[in-house]
């Protein structure tokens, strides 16, 4: 087949689409649906700018065919905001000034969400390991690591813990 009729559940909304089979998920999100928050960096799985969650797994949307995603739940960086309110991860990136040009940020936010879902209290090493597939040309990563630490501390439902830095000293 050259085209496929698919249904995607993107950020909680159902989209019924006809896609050409040689379109990547990234191209469908950006070009067909106008959801430009997910970025194109390299197209070859190396930079992480295109990271989205597919059924809770972070993948590179530049290396996935939209036609094979029928029925899947997709979350982009914009999907974490509720009625225009930033969530704790997005807010932490803002607060820690972990954004310069912002091009890597949507991918960073999505990958951070998948990390914190599995590991709510990651060490600095675990944060850096989790973000190994997300390249940032601006910040030097220091502030991004701080933003992820802050997001972990400010996650809803978490009791406020000692500052991550203090914990590391204590160990």
């Amino acid at each position: 087949m050259k085209d496929a009729a698919i249904t995607l559940h993107i950020n909680g909304e159902e989209h019924k689409l006809n896609v050409a089979v040689n379109r990547t998920l990234l191209e469908v999100l950006r070009d067909q649906l106008g959801m430009t928050e997910t970025k194109y960096g390299c197209g070859t799985g190396e930079c992480g700018a295109c990271t989205v969650l597919v059924d809770d797994r972070a993948i590179n949307s530049c290396l996935a065919l939209a036609a094979t995603m029928d029925g899947k739940r997709i979350t982009t960086a914009a999907g974490f905001a509720h009625f225009g309110e930033l969530n704790h991860i997005q807010q932490a990136f803002n607060d820690e000034a972990a954004i310069q040009c912002g091009y890597c940020t949507p991918g960073m936010i999505v990958k951070t969400a998948s990390l914190l879902a599995k590991n709510p209290d990651p060490t600095e090493h675990e944060i850096r390991h989790a973000l190994e597939g997300n390249i940032c040309r601006c910040t030097g990563y220091e502030k991004i690591v701080k933003a992820v630490q802050k997001a972990a501390r400010t996650a809803p439902g978490r009791t406020v813990k000692a500052d991550a830095a203090c914990q590391e000293v204590a160990q």
């Binding site: 799985g45 992480g48 990271t51 797994r57 590179n60 290396l63 990958k111 190994e132 597939g133």
Partner: peptide, 9 residues
């Protein structure tokens, strides 16, 4: 192996 995103795929 590669990155978390690639390992998931």
């Amino acid at each position: 192996f590669a990155t978390g995103q690639v390992r998931n795929t």
